[in-house]
Measured scan of single mutants.
Amino acid sequence: RLYEREDHKGLMMELSEDCPSIQDRFHLSEIRSLHVLEGCWVLYELPNYRGRQYLLRPQEYRRCQDWGAMDAKAGSLRRV
């Protein structure tokens, strides 16, 4: 689950498959919190699986710093 605000607030989007462009699919370029329910995912800073990568394991991420990012920029997401 992807959230537009910290602490799992605001608009929530659910994802169960790879997403090459978060902007195209959800009209957002920033994700401020996440909740990974199962499996491991890689969040990429840019669309089409480019830029900085962040490995996400099943857990709650209340803010972008929790997954190691300096800002909430999110371009794509892929399951590993």
Rank of each mutant, 00 (worst) to 15 (best):
G75W: 00
E60A: 15
Y44H: 08
E4L: 08
K73N: 14
D18S: 11
L28Y: 09
L34F: 12
N48W: 11
C40M: 13
C40E: 15
H35K: 14
E14W: 06
L55K: 11
Y49K: 01
H27V: 05
G10R: 01
S29G: 12
L55I: 15
R63L: 04
D7T: 00
L43Y: 09
I22T: 04
A74S: 08
M12A: 12
K9T: 11
E38C: 09
A69P: 00
L43W: 02
K73M: 09
D18Y: 03
W67V: 01
A72L: 02
L11C: 13
R25C: 08
G10Q: 03
R62H: 15
E6L: 01
L37F: 09
R50C: 14
W67K: 02
Y3Q: 02
Q23E: 14
D18G: 01
L11F: 14
R79S: 10
L77R: 00
R50S: 14
L11N: 15
Q59R: 13
M12P: 14
S76H: 03
L15A: 06
L77M: 14
S21L: 03
L37Y: 08
E45N: 01
R50Y: 05
W67P: 01
D71E: 10
S21N: 15
R32Y: 07
G51D: 06
G10T: 00
G39P: 02
C40L: 14
E17M: 09
E14K: 12
D71N: 10
E4G: 08
Y54K: 03
V36L: 04
R63E: 09
M70C: 10
A74D: 03
D7E: 14
C19Y: 04
F26Q: 03
V80I: 08
I22N: 05
D24Q: 10
R32E: 06
S21T: 06
G39D: 08
D71K: 12
A72Q: 05
R57C: 10
L28P: 02
N48A: 08
I31Y: 02
I22M: 05
Y54A: 01
L46V: 00
D71S: 14
Y61A: 00
R5P: 03
S21E: 05
G68S: 07
R52G: 07
P20F: 03
Q53L: 03
G68M: 04
L43T: 04
P20K: 11
R32F: 04
E6D: 06
M70S: 13
Y44D: 00
S29M: 07
Q53T: 10
L43D: 01
G10L: 00
D66H: 06
L2R: 01
E17D: 14
M13V: 14
H35V: 15
G39C: 06
S33T: 00
G10Y: 05
H35G: 02
Q53W: 09
L28G: 07
Q65Y: 11
R5I: 08
R32N: 11
E4K: 07
L56G: 01
L46C: 13
L55N: 09
R62A: 15
L34V: 13
K9W: 01
E17K: 07
L55P: 15
M13N: 09
D66P: 02
R32H: 15
C40W: 12
S33H: 01
Q23W: 14
K73H: 14
D71P: 01
S21K: 06
R1S: 01
K73R: 15
G68F: 04
R25V: 14
Y44F: 13
E38S: 14
E60W: 10
P20L: 05
M70A: 15
Y3I: 04
Y49W: 06
Q65R: 10
R63K: 08
L77W: 05
E6F: 04
R32M: 07
R57D: 10
E60Y: 13
L46M: 10
R57V: 11
E45M: 03
F26V: 06
L28V: 14
Q59K: 15
G51C: 04
R25E: 13
D7Y: 12
H35T: 15
K9Q: 15
L11E: 14
S33L: 02
R32P: 11
V36N: 03
L15I: 07
D7G: 10
D18F: 00
Y54G: 00
K73V: 10
M12E: 07
H35S: 13
F26G: 07
Q23A: 13
G75L: 02
R63G: 07
A72W: 07
G39M: 01
L2F: 04
E45T: 12
N48L: 13
A69V: 02
I22H: 03
P20Q: 07
A69L: 01
D24G: 11
C40F: 13
Y49R: 01
G68E: 02
L11M: 14
R25S: 13
Y3W: 08
D24L: 08
S16F: 12
S76D: 03
Y61T: 06
M13A: 12
M13E: 08
H27Y: 09
K73L: 10
R5C: 12
I31L: 08
R50K: 14
L37C: 05
G75A: 05
L37T: 08
L34E: 06
E4T: 12
E30F: 09
P20R: 07
H35F: 08
R57Q: 13
L28M: 14
R32G: 15
M13S: 07
G39E: 10
S33A: 05
L34A: 13
S76A: 05
N48E: 08
R5T: 03
R5W: 10
R5V: 07
K73F: 07
L37P: 02
G10A: 00
H35N: 12
A72R: 03
Y61M: 00
E4D: 11
E14R: 07
L28S: 09
M70K: 13
F26L: 08
E30V: 08
P20V: 08
D24P: 00
S16P: 02
S33Q: 00
Q65W: 08
Q59I: 11
F26A: 05
E30I: 06
E30M: 09
S33F: 00
W67R: 03
Q53M: 08
Y54E: 00
G51Q: 06
G39R: 02
S33C: 03
L43C: 04
C19W: 02
S76L: 02
L55G: 13
Q23P: 12
Q59A: 15
Y44R: 06
L56W: 00
E6Y: 04
M12W: 10
A74V: 15
C19A: 02
Y61P: 00
L28R: 13
R5L: 14
P20I: 06
L43H: 03
S21D: 13
I22C: 05
P58A: 11
A72P: 14
I31H: 01
E6T: 07
E14V: 09
L43M: 12
I31A: 05
S21G: 05
C19E: 07
I31T: 03
G39T: 01
L77I: 15
Q65C: 09
R32W: 04
E4V: 08
A69T: 07
P58R: 07
P58I: 05
M13Y: 12
A74N: 04
E4R: 05
E38W: 08
L11V: 13
L34T: 02
M70Y: 12
G39Q: 02
M70H: 15
I31K: 00
Q53Y: 11
Q65T: 14
Q23T: 15
W67T: 05
E30N: 12
L2C: 03
R52N: 14
H35E: 15
R52I: 08
Q23M: 14
